[in-house]
């Protein structure tokens, strides 16, 4: 069992990191190869002046308050806030987890900053609660259930099982060694799967929403279109 632990800790961890980073770079290159910049076309008419545009607006204070009106922050605020918190935590927790960073220090000699174990423990519990919430959504909300397929369950378990096993291993609830081996295996499996399964939305959320021209692109600056 110790051999397996060493294998997962050493070469397999390195391979999973390389596959993950390589996959991300491949997807980024693929995106930029398949999109092109489209400039705003020259308009033969006249564009309105700033003053003219302002005259259509409601009073300034109301305009400020309704800045997010029409976006998901106003149409489904609770889910947007919850899912934002979840996504931030799910990425922050493993990066700033003390045990992970000790392993990195032992292997490569660099010590990334860590949060205290208490905080990351709370984070993990929150993430697992979110897991239960998403499970509830997938099973009981008809609008989510109707589009849920095998790939979604794969995504679900790929994300939450490493957290669950990590939590159980940290608190030594079941036998420690098998649990930590399972945790390492699942975590590495998730890393490898990120660029190639539905989890690639981690990359494309930023690429699509920042670079593509769309009504909903962030800061209205996206200027790329698909080839």
């Amino acid at each position: 069992m110790h051999q397996l632990y060493l294998l997962l800790r050493g070469p397999l961890a390195l391979i999973s990191f390389i596959v993950f980073i390589g996959g991300v770079i491949y997807q980024i290159i693929w995106f930029f190869n398949n999109t092109k910049v489209q400039e705003i076309p020259k308009n033969p008419g006249l564009l309105p002046s700033k003053k003219e545009i302002k005259s259509f607006y409601p009073p300034e204070d109301i305009k400020k308050l309704t800045k997010w009106e029409g976006s998901v922050w106003s149409t489904q605020p609770y889910f947007t806030i919850l899912t934002s918190i979840f996504h931030i935590l799910v990425i922050l927790t493993p990066i700033f987890l003390l045990a992970h960073n000790i392993l990195i220090k032992q292997s490569w000699g660099i010590a990334p900053p860590s949060l205290s174990e208490k905080i990351t423990d709370v984070f993990t519990i929150v993430v697992l609660c979110f897991g239960a919430y998403f499970l509830y959504r997938r099973i009981f909300l008809s609008k989510v259930r109707i589009i849920t397929g095998g790939g979604d369950w794969l995504m679900f378990f790929l994300v939450f099982l490493p957290y669950l096993t990590g939590f159980l291993a940290y608190h030594q609830i079941f036998s420690y060694m098998p649990m930590v081996i399972l945790h390492m295996f699942l975590g590495e499996l998730m890393l490898v799967c990120i660029p190639f399964t539905r989890l690639k939305h981690m990359i494309f959320f930023f690429l699509n929403r920042f670079y593509l021209k769309s009504e909903y692109s962030f800061f209205k600056k996206g200027n790329r279109v698909w080839n």
Binding site: Q76, T83, L141, K200, W226
Partner: peptide
């Protein structure tokens, strides 16, 4: 083809598109 395949594999089935 590549665009369709991409969209199918990217869609996270989050259902946030519904009220739009």
């Amino acid at each position: 083809k590549s665009k369709i395949k991409f969209a199918m594999s990217l869609c996270a089935r989050c259902s946030m598109c519904a009220p739009s």
